[in-house]
Design a protein around this nucleic acid. Structure first.
Length: 487
RNA sequence: GGCCCGUUGGUCAAGCGGCCUAAGACACCGCCCUUUCACGGCGGCUACACGGGUUCGAAUCCCGUACGGGUCACCA
C-alpha cells in the first residue's frame, strides 16, 4: 500500500521549529517509502487563522526545501486542501453521525458548562461533559431553539471501552473511554472542531500514517472513536516528543527565536536548520552528523525516533550552521550577506555594483570560518571598509606604546606605497620583510599594524584585511592612528 | 486533580539482558599549531533519577516512588 503522510498546520502564526520538524519527518518518511507527502491547512479557527500565516508557513517549508507532492497550492485528487473549503464534506459526515446516533445536538450554555467543569474539578474528577443533552426530546429541542440557542454537535462517547492506539514511536497506548466526556465536533457556527475535521480529512485523503507532535497523543482516542463510529480504518500514528527550551519547558515564543523565519532572517542556512532539527528527536545509526536532505531521506526511520523530549540547543545549531557556512562557496555567502551589509549602511538599498560584490566575496572568504550565522557579518565589515579604524581600547592602546612603533609604521607605509598590487601574497611577503629588516619578532610587527588599522587585537587575517581595505584606506587608517596616538 | 507520555554526563544522544569499569557530537578545560582570536589536531572532565523485584547476569524486563512534560476548550 502506498504510504501517505501529511503535515497539517493551523495557520495561526509563522512556522515554528517544532512544526518544521513534524513537516520534515513526514516528508522524509514519505520519501523513504516512495510515498506521498501532503500539506493541508487546518484553518477552522476563524478567529486566529490568516492567509498571511498560511503563506508564511508555506514559504518557510519551501525555504527549507521540504516539498509536498500534494496539497495546498500544488493541488491533487483529494482536495480542496483548506478546511474552510471542505465544510460541505464535514456536514455530510456530521449528518451520518447524528443519524446513526453517534452524535447529538447540545444546547448547553457556556455558563452551564463552566459550572459543570468547576463542580467536577472540585470533586477531584476529570472535568468533562457529562451528557446533559444526550437524550433531549423533540419538544425540549424546540424549546431551546425558541430561546434562540444555537446548538453544537457532540460525539457520544461509548462507555467502558478501552481505546488502543498503535503508535510507531510509543507502542501500544491505551485510554479508557470513561475518562472522556462527550466532546464537541461541530461548533455552534457550523464549523467543525479539530478532532472531527482531522479525521475526515485524513480518511478522505487516504492518509496511512499520522506523524505529529506528542501534544496530540491525548487527543488521539477521540479521533479513533470517530473512525470507529464511521466504520473507517484507523491510520497508524507516530507521536514525536516535544522540543523543549533550555528550562525544559515546551518551546514557546517567550524563548526568543522559535519561528523558522527568525533563523532565516539571522542568516542561518536552510540545510543547516534541516540537519539540526532532524537530529532533534531522531538519531542516525552511524556516527555521521552532517546530512543533506537526500541523505536524510535515505536514512530516516521512525524506529530511531526518540521517545523523550529534546532540548533545543543553540550552541549545537551554531556549530552545525558554521560548518555549512565554511562549506559554502563565497559567492553564495556574499549574496546572502548583502542585506546585513546594507543594514550597517555600507551598501545602499540598491543592487550592489560588480566591484562591491567582488569586495563582499573577499570579505566572506576572510570571515567564513569566524561566523556562526550571516547576520554576524555586521560585526565584521568595519575591518574591511572605510578609512577610519575603531578607537583602540585597553590592551590595544598599550600595543601602540612600543618603542619599535615608529620604525614599523614607517617601513610599512613605504612598502604599501611601493608595492605594485596589494594581494594576499604581496602582503604576506611585505609583512615578513618588515620583521626581517627590523629584526623583530612577529608579534611586535603584526600586532601594532593590526591595532593601527583596525583598533582591535583580534580579527581576520591581516593579509585578508589589507587588500580588501585598499591602499588608500590602509594609509589613511595608519595616518589617523598616528595622529590620534603618536602625537 | 484525572488520564497519557517520558527520565543515560550541562546539552543532543548510542545502547534493545552478558561485547558497558557505558559510544559519538556540542559545550567546557588543557596542550599543540599560530602574529592574536578563530579554524584544525590531540587529550581531559562529567551520566544509567531513586527503591524494590525477575535473572547466573539489568542502563536494558516488571512494579512502586520521585521528578519533568502533555492533555482534559464551541484552540489546533
Amino acid at each position: 500500500m502506498e504510504i501517505r503522510v501529511r503535515f497539517a498546520p493551523s495557520p495561526t502564526g509563522p512556522l515554528h521549529i517544532g512544526g518544521a520538524r513534524s513537516a520534515l519527518f513526514n516528508y522524509l518518511w514519505a520519501r523513504k517509502n516512495k510515498g506521498t507527502f501532503i500539506v493541508r491547512s487546518e484553518d477552522t479557527d476563524l478567529e486566529r487563522s490568516s492567509r498571511e500565516s498560511e503563506h508564511n508557513i508555506l514559504e518557510s517549508l519551501r525555504w527549507l526545501n521540504i516539498q509536498w507532492g500534494e496539497g495546498i497550492e500544488v493541488g491533487g485528487e483529494h482536495g480542496p486542501y483548506r478546511q474552510t473549503d471542505r465544510l460541505d464534506l464535514y456536514r455530510e459526515y456530521t449528518k451520518k453521525l447524528i443519524e446513526s446516533g453517534h452524535a447529538y445536538l447540545c444546547y448547553c450554555s457556556e455558563e452551564e458548562l463552566e459550572q459543570e467543569r468547576k463542580d467536577l474539578t472540585a470533586k477531584g474528577e476529570t472535568p468533562r461533559y457529562m451528557g446533559k443533552c444526550r437524550h433531549l426530546t423533540q419538544e425540549q429541542r424546540a424549546g431551546f431553539e425558541a430561546e434562540g440557542r444555537k446548538p453544537v454537535v457532540r460525539f457520544r462517547v461509548p462507555e467502558g471501552q478501552a481505546i488502543h492506539i498503535n503508535d510507531q514511536v510509543r507502542g501500544d497506548v491505551v485510554f479508557e473511554s470513561d475518562g472522556i466526556g462527550d466532546y464537541v465536533i461541530v461548533k455552534s457556527d457550523g464549523i467543525p472542531t479539530y478532532n472531527f475535521a482531522v479525521v475526515i480529512d485524513d480518511t478522505t485523503m487516504n492518509v496511512t500514517q499520522v506523524i505529529r507532535g506528542e501534544e496530540h497523543l491525548s487527543n488521539t482516542p477521540r479521533q479513533v472513536l470517530i473512525y470507529q463510529a464511521l466504520g473507517l480504518s484507523v491510520p497508524e500514528f507516530a507521536h514525536i516528543s516535544l522540543i523543549m527550551n533550555t528550562e525544559g519547558r515546551k518551546m514557546s515564543k517567550r524563548d526568543g527565536d522559535t519561528a523558522v523565519i527568525d533563523y532565516r532572517k539571522k542568516g542561518y542556512l536552510p540545510e543547516a536548520i534541516v540537519n539540526f532539527i532532524a537530529l532533534l528527536g531522531w538519531s542516525p545509526s552511524g556516527e555521521k552528523e552532517f546530512y543533506t536532505l537526500d541523505e536524510l531521506a535515505e536514512e530516516f526511520s521512525l524506529e530511531r525516533v526518540s521517545k523523550s523530549p529534546a532540548v533545543f540547543d543553540f550552541q549545537k545549531l551554531n556549530y552545525i550552521n558554521s560548518h555549512y557556512i565554511k562549506q559554502t562557496e563565497p559567492e553564495r555567502l556574499a549574496q546572502l550577506a548583502i542585506p546585513y551589509v546594507q543594514q550597517v549602511g555600507v551598501f545602499s538599498a540598491e543592487e550592489p555594483s560588480a566591484e562591491q560584490q567582488q569586495w563582499l566575496i573577499g570579505v566572506m572568504k576572510a570571515i567564513a570560518d569566524k561566523i556562526s550565522y550571516l547576520a554576524e557579518v555586521k560585526d565584521f565589515v568595519h575591518y574591511f571598509h572605510g578609512d577610519t579604524p575603531l578607537e583602540p581600547q585597553g590592551e590595544a592602546l598599550e600595543v601602540l606604546k612600543g618603542e619599535q612603533i615608529t620604525s614599523v609604521f614607517e617601513l610599512f607605509r613605504g612598502k604599501v606605497q611601493e608595492v605594485e598590487e596589494l594581494s594576499e601574497a604581496t602582503v604576506k611577503t611585505l609583512l615578513k620583510q618588515i620583521t626581517k629588516e627590523l629584526k623583530l619578532g612577529g608579534k611586535l610587527v603584526y600586532m601594532p599594524i593590526r591595532v593601527a588599522l583596525t583598533g582591535q587585537m583580534h580579527g581576520p587575517e591581516l593579509y585578508d584585511i589589507i587588500p580588501l581595505l585598499g591602499r588608500e584606506n590602509v594609509l589613511k587608517r595608519l595616518e589617523i592612528t598616528e595622529k590620534r596616538h603618536l602625537g
